[in-house]
Simulated assay, not measured.
Amino acid sequence: FFFESPHFELTIVDTNEKLKMKNISHSTFYQAAEISDDTKIVFRIKLQQEPAKEKELTKDQKLMVNAVNEVVLSRVRFKALEEILEEKGLIKGDELFDKIEKVAKRDFDTLKKELL
Rank of each mutant, 00 (worst) to 15 (best):
F1G: 13
F2L: 10
F2M: 08
F2K: 07
F3H: 08
E4R: 11
P6Y: 02
H7Y: 12
F8D: 01
F8Y: 14
E9P: 04
I12P: 01
V13I: 13
D14S: 04
N16F: 01
E17N: 04
K18M: 13
K18V: 14
K18F: 03
K20Y: 07
K22F: 10
I24A: 05
I24Y: 15
S27C: 06
T28I: 01
F29I: 04
Y30F: 11
Y30A: 04
Y30D: 08
Q31N: 15
A33K: 13
E34C: 02
I35L: 15
I35E: 06
S36M: 03
T39N: 04
K40E: 13
K40Y: 11
I41K: 09
I41M: 08
V42E: 13
V42P: 03
V42F: 07
F43W: 11
R44V: 05
R44P: 01
I45C: 03
K46F: 00
K46A: 03
L47M: 12
L47R: 05
L47Y: 14
Q48H: 02
Q48G: 00
P51Q: 08
P51T: 10
A52H: 09
A52I: 10
A52W: 06
K53W: 05
K53F: 08
E54Q: 12
K55I: 12
L57N: 13
L57C: 09
K59F: 14
D60T: 03
D60R: 11
Q61D: 03
Q61A: 05
K62T: 05
K62D: 11
L63I: 14
L63W: 05
M64A: 14
M64I: 13
V65M: 08
V65T: 10
N66I: 05
N66F: 02
N66W: 02
V68Y: 11
V68H: 07
N69E: 15
N69G: 15
N69W: 05
N69M: 09
V71T: 09
V72R: 15
L73E: 15
S74L: 10
R75T: 03
R75K: 15
R75V: 01
V76S: 07
V76Y: 11
F78E: 10
K79Q: 14
K79G: 01
L81Q: 04
L81E: 02
E83H: 09
E83I: 01
E83T: 03
I84F: 04
I84A: 10
L85D: 07
L85C: 03
E86R: 15
E86G: 02
E87D: 12
K88D: 12
G89V: 07
G89T: 06
L90Q: 01
L90T: 00
L90Y: 05
K92G: 01
K92L: 01
K92H: 02
G93A: 12
G93R: 13
D94K: 07
L96S: 06
F97W: 05
F97R: 00
D98Y: 07
D98R: 06
K99C: 13
K99G: 04
I100P: 03
I100L: 15
I100T: 03
I100G: 02
E101M: 02
K102W: 09
A104K: 09
A104R: 07
A104N: 06
D107H: 00
F108C: 00
D109L: 02
L111M: 11
K113E: 14
K113I: 08
E114I: 13
L115R: 10
L115I: 06
L115G: 04
L115W: 10
L116Q: 02
L116C: 04
